[in-house]
Design a protein around this nucleic acid. Structure first.
Lengths: 206, 206
DNA sequence: GTAAATGATATAGTTTAATATATCATATAC
DNA sequence: GTATATGATATATTAAACTATATCATTTAC
C-alpha cells in the first residue's frame, strides 16, 4: 500500500483538530483555500498530500508543522499532550454533544461578530473536552445547546449567551472540583469501552 | 514567491540535519529512496514536496514530522534547540572541519562494519559541534582528519581510530573546562557531565 | 596534476495531487 | 415532513511532483 502509516497519523491529527474546533470540512475548505473534496480525501488517507496543503490546513487549525529530533520526541509529546484535547475521556454521547456545542458556537460567530463572551464560551467548551464528564451532565449541555441554537436563529438575544456562559462556567467548576486528578492518573479507565481510537496511548512517567 | 516561506524553513532544517550528519545528497538519496536531483530541488526550495518524501527524508535524518499546537511552539522549540547542533558558535573553518570529520567517519562506517570506537567518535564530534572552538584547535582537528583518511584507505589499522578517539576526548575535555558557559541558554547543564547514554546516531541495518 | 566526489541543472516521461463541479445518502434542525 | 448541513464520491482538467539519466563546474583527496 502506498499510504504510509505515518501519514495517517498526521492526517488523523488534522481531523481531530478540525472536529475539536467545530469546523466542517466545508468551513475548513473556505478558510484554508483547499476544496472540500480534497480534504475528504486527505482525512481518509487517500492521497499523499503536499507540504503546502498540510501547512495551509495546519495554519487554520492553529497547528505548526515541525521537524523534531527523534531523541526529543518524548519530551515534545508530553508538552503537546498537556495543551491539546488529547484523548476523549468522556462518554461518547457527551463528546458528541460538546462537539455539537463547539460547532454551534462557530456558526454563531460566523454570522455575527459575536461578543467576547462567545470566545470565552468557546474556550470553556474546549477545556471541558479535557475532563471526564458523566452522562448526568448531558442535560445541561443539551440545554446550553438548544439556547445557542435559538440565539443562532435570532430568536434570542446575546444576553442569553452570557447566561449560558455562566452556566457552563459553574458546570466546569463543579467538574474540576469533583475530579481534578483526571489527567494525573491516565491508567484509570472508564466503565464504558472505548473500542476504537486507542492509537495514542503511550503513558510515560516523568 | 511561489514557495511558502514556511516550506523553506522545513527544507533548511532537513539540509542542516543532513550536513550535520556528514551525509552527501547522494548518500541520503540511497538511504531514503529519493533521487539526488530531487533532493537538490527540495533543498533549494524549488518544489512543493509531498508528505511521503518529507517523511522518508526525515526518517533517515532521525527527525520526526510533527503537528504541534501553535500555543506549544515556544516550549517545543526550546526543547529542540537543546538537543540539536543549533547555531554554529565556532569559526567557519572549524565548523567545516568538523563536518569534514563527520563525513569521513560516515564514509568509514559505510565501508567496513567499524568497531564501536567509531560510533563513539561520531558522538564526540557531534557534541563538539555544540561548543565554540577557537582556531587554535584547528590543527588537532585536521590531524584527526588526516589519520582517519588514511584509515579509510586501509593504509592504517583500526587501532589508530582508538588513538584519534582519545585525542578527541582530551580535546573535548579541555574545551569543556575552558568554556563551560559557551551559550547562555544551555548554561543549566554543566559541560563535564556529557551523558553517554544518548541515542546512538548510526543505526544502519546491513 | 589527476581522479573522484560534490552539488546543481537540464530534459523527457510518468504519475498524481490539486482543482472545479456535481451528485448522493444520511444525519440533523425547524 | 421539509429543509439544511454533512461527508463521501465521481468525472474531467490542469499543474506539478517524481523519476531516470546525463552533464557541468567546483571542490577535495592522493
Amino acid at each position: 500500500m502506498k499510504t504510509h502509516y505515518k501519514i495517517e497519523e498526521i492526517t488523523k491529527t488534522l481531523q481531530a483538530a478540525r472536529v475539536s474546533k467545530g469546523l466542517s470540512q466545508r468551513a475548513l475548505s473556505q478558510r484554508a483555500g483547499v476544496p472540500q473534496a480534497h480534504i475528504s480525501k486527505i482525512e481518509s488517507g487517500a492521497v499523499d498530500l503536499r507540504l503546502s496543503s498540510l501547512i495551509a490546513l495546519a495554519r487554520v487549525l492553529d497547528l505548526e508543522v515541525a521537524l523534531v529530533p527523534r531523541k526529543a520526541v518524548p519530551a515534545v509529546q508530553s508538552i503537546v499532550r498537556s495543551s491539546e484535547p488529547a484523548a476523549s475521556p468522556s462518554t461518547p454521547a457527551v463528546v458528541k454533544e460538546l462537539q455539537r456545542l463547539q460547532h454551534t458556537l462557530g456558526a454563531i460567530s460566523e454570522l455575527t461578530n459575536g461578543p467576547k463572551e462567545l470566545a470565552q464560551l468557546q474556550r470553556q467548551i474546549r477545556e471541558l473536552q479535557h475532563f471526564r464528564l458523566a452522562d448526568e451532565h448531558l442535560a445541561a449541555l443539551k440545554d446550553a445547546n438548544s439556547v445557542l441554537q435559538a440565539v443562532k436563529n435570532h430568536k434570542k438575544g446575546t444576553e442569553d449567551i452570557r447566561r449560558v456562559l455562566t452556566n457552563v462556567q459553574t458546570l466546569r467548576n463543579a467538574i474540576a472540583h469533583q475530579t481534578n486528578s483526571v489527567s494525573a492518573n491516565t491508567a484509570a479507565r472508564p466503565a464504558y469501552t472505548l473500542d476504537d481510537e486507542a492509537s495514542n496511548g503511550s503513558s510515560q512517567r516523568p
